[in-house]
Write a protein that binds this DNA or RNA. Structure first.
Length: 740
DNA sequence: CAATTCGGGATCTGC
DNA sequence: TCCCGAATTG
């Protein structure tokens, strides 16, 4: 490709976005409008035409997949892009923190806690609460961090009104700092704090990054916005790309207002709209646009398809979820008869539970299918166990990891013993047997659980606990020793901003790869045997997953650094799977998982009130559901089907359902109806009539006094024999008709 | 300390 | 209906 050619592929708006200069730019890029092409071309253009150093450009995305794709496409255009930092927000935060660990009071070898680990941490200091209560506290803490709120922030009341939350959040922070680790929120918050408080570091980074680009900006949260501001200062050129209509992560702290108000909050920002869609037929965009245009909180744009015409999207009304699955199968059959393949078709749903009906039917009729993202690799119990063991080897202060594996498989070390070790780690040391064997004199490391276990092992009550713990400590020590000596803390060069992304260097000799360590962990800890011996089918799969983890480690070196890199990669890239992506199979996928994907044929299923949109709520929740619908429809290139069922199995019970209000928001002429006319949104009362005799599990026999049709199905008012009069949605109440 | 039974709750989930 | 966590029992 000669110079200049790479710009020839662009339309006028895209070209304007690439060549824009000034304070900053907001690119409003509709679905399928070629935004990745614009960002990657802009990076190449800045280097080639404007002579920027590749190292002075920072591009952040939200998913590893997007980061990889951006890196690949940019490098294909301009090889020097390999020196540009293209990372996810969190991966950038981690990169930053490891270079400036001391400024945040961290060791540069910290590991990253996920939500589950945070819950365990909360449980550690609130043992009297249940795990699910701890999980709620942990998720509120995560939310507070999404909004950049510290335990002493006045705005904390916005997250929860609970009185002692401030104290719990403070305890959590203290506890987390003791472990030497960080959670996902910290990967954004701590870099922000360092930049705000440390002028030297701030100046160094501002001098380095002259251009900051953010992809999928509509998914950013408040903390990310603040980090971006601190990084950019007044001088860097800021370019954010996004689509307010595709903001679907509000529940995780994403703040649509970030993109809606971006021009005002930064100031001097120009806006370019990319409204030419290269993916779908116009008929598909019309349906997606009809629904999302009902939202009030949007910047407003109208997608115009480059591919005119196309078949009208089809609406299918079906009796129940089995019929719905059969309809999908017929669509697949038709596509294949017309020369297409299984992988041309994607079945989309709002909740994972809906996949079951499709799985069962497809398995029976021998359609190959793949389920995207229901249980991810890293989330599997056996994988988390092995990773926790590795984390303990890497960092003896990791309380969460320690608790997870110290008695798994069972070594006789129960709750009482674990508590004794934890107490020893935090409060013991010099007083009680600090000179126990194995520990170097004079080096008492507060909070180091492995060292504490070594000291405490002799003092435990049962012989089984003593020998079990000794064996555990011995194994951790031997594995640690195989990695070489521990580095002295604080040795990382804080000025090392010039580094490019530190990618793992695959070891030349497989015997020196980290796979050897992971293999020993999996075998010698007994975890492989433990998981294999469970359920017969499941056990095989679990053993295979552990073997896969061993394989994954072969790209890393057999050293402390190699281990830390591996743990970070696994923690930050959860999409790692073991499936074969090349197989020809129908895709079963939640709508959230489809972002950024496209398929020739898309079937959006379960368009029913209460399911999609999920609640009959209004306002922000409903608007987010509309955006979800918009994302779902705009995945389709050639053909779009929408389905809804009159009845659906809901928690084991068959429930009447009403068509989604979204179906009523589509103009009649924009859609083909298969198996029935376009339903009016709502409003049937089903079998419910005044005078019916009913029975309720909790309230006993009664009589229907009144029935009202609503968007969520019939609402009945029942007078019970006890004299009580209550209102129910028949969809949810366990109300049985017993006669008239 | 480990195995078994019982009861309540059930979204989406980038990093 | 099905899964997970807590209480109970060996």
């Amino acid at each position: 490709m000669t110079t200049g050619d790479y710009l020839a592929m662009l339309n006028p708006e895209q070209l304007a976005a690439v060549r824009h200069e000034g304070r900053g730019l907001l690119i409003l890029a509709g679905a399928g409008s070629g935004k990745t092409r614009v960002i990657t071309t802009k990076i190449a253009w800045l280097i080639r035409e404007r002579g920027l150093e590749p190292e002075s450009i920072l591009a952040v995305t939200f998913t590893n997949k997007a980061a990889r794709e951006m890196q690949e496409r940019a490098c294909a255009m301009e090889p020097r892009c390999s020196r540009t930092i293209i990372r996810t927000f969190h991966s950038f935060g981690s990169w930053f923190l490891r270079r400036n660990a001391r400024a945040a009071g961290l060791d540069s070898s910290f590991t990253i806690y996920d939500d589950d680990d945070s819950t365990t941490l909360v449980h550690g200091f609130l043992p009297e609460k249940t795990r699910s209560e701890c999980s709620r506290i942990a998720s509120r803490i995560a939310k507070a961090k999404d909004f950049a709120l510290a335990p002493d922030s006045p705005g904390l009341a916005a997250v929860t009104s609970e009185g002692d939350f401030r104290r719990l959040y403070g305890d959590y922070e203290a506890r987390l700092r003791k472990t030497g680790n960080v959670d996902f929120g910290d990967l954004i918050l701590l870099p922000g704090r360092i930049l705000a408080e440390n002028e030297a570091i701030r100046n160094r980074f501002r001098q380095r990054f002259r251009v900051v680009l953010v992809d999928e900006y509509q998914d950013s949260n408040v903390a990310q916005f603040e980090l971006l501001r601190l990084l950019a200062g007044d001088e860097a050129y800021v370019c954010v790309v996004g689509d307010d209509d595709q903001s679907i992560y509000r529940f995780r702290g994403a703040e649509v207002r970030n993109i809606l108000t971006f021009p005002d909050t930064f100031g001097g920002i120009d806006v370019v709209r990319l409204e030419r869609n290269y993916r779908s037929y116009q008929s598909i965009l019309d349906v997606a646009g009809a629904v999302v245009s009902r939202n009030e909180g949007r910047l407003g744009k109208r997608l115009v398809a480059e591919r005119k015409g196309g078949r009208k999207p089809v609406l299918a009304t079906l009796a129940d979820h089995d019929e719905e699955a059969a309809y999908c199968a017929r669509v697949v059959e038709r596509v294949r008869k017309a020369g297409g393949s299984y992988s041309d078709v994607a079945v989309l749903y709002r909740t994972n539970a809906q996949s079951l009906a499709f799985e069962r039917l497809f398995a029976r009729i021998k359609f190959p299918y793949r389920i995207v993202g229901s249980v991810r690799f890293y989330e599997r119990e056996e994988i988390k166990d092995a990773l926790a063991f590795l984390a303990v080897v890497s960092n003896g202060r990791d309380e969460v990891a320690f608790r997870r594996v110290v008695n798994k498989p069972a070594r006789g070390v129960g709750g009482v013993s674990v508590q004794a070790i934890v107490d020893e780690a935090y409060f013991g040391g010099t007083a009680a047997g600090g000179t126990a064997d194995g520990e170097l004199p004079g080096i008492f490391e507060p909070g180091n659980l492995v060292a504490a276990a070594r000291r405490a092992a002799g003092g435990l009550t049962t012989a089984r606990a003593r020998s079990g713990l000794a064996a555990f400590v011995d194994l951790v020590d031997r594995l640690g020793a195989s990695l070489g000596p521990k580095p002295v803390a604080g040795e990382v060069d804080e000025g090392a901003v010039g580094d490019t992304a530190a990618l793992p260097v695959p070891p030349a000799d497989p015997e020196r790869s980290l796979a050897r360590l992971v293999e020993r962990v999996v075998m010698e800890s007994g975890l492989r045997e433990y998981h294999e011996s469970g359920d017969e089918v499941q056990g095989k799969q679990r053993a295979a997953n552990l073997d896969e983890l061993v394989n994954a480690a072969s790209d890393y070196g057999l050293s402390r650094d190699g281990l830390a890199q591996f743990l970070e990669a696994v923690e930050l890239d959860r999409a790692m799977t073991i499936r074969d992506p090349d197989a020809d199979a129908v895709t079963l996928i939640t709508i959230h998982n489809t972002k950024g994907l496209e398929f020739p044929v898309v079937i959006v299923t379960g368009l029913e009130q209460g399911l999609f949109p999920r609640d009959d709520e209004s306002g922000e929740d409903l608007e987010e559901e509309r955006r979800l619908f918009y994302v779902a429809c705009t995945r389709a290139k050639d053909e779009l089907h929408l389905t809804w069922c009159r009845r659906r199995l809901f928690r084991g019970k068959i429930m009447e359902s009403a068509p989604s209000r979204f179906l009523g928001e589509i103009p009649r002429e924009a859609i083909d109806t298969a198996g029935g006319r376009l339903p009016a949104p709502a409003l049937s009362t089903g079998p419910w009539k005044p005078g019916l005799a009913v029975y309720h599990d909790d309230y006993g026999p009664g009589c229907v006094a009144q029935v009202k049709p609503t968007g969520s199905g019939p609402l009945v008012i029942v007078r019970f024999e006890t004299g009580k009069q209550l209102r129910f949605f028949t969809r949810y109440a366990g109300l049985e008709i017993v006669g008239r």
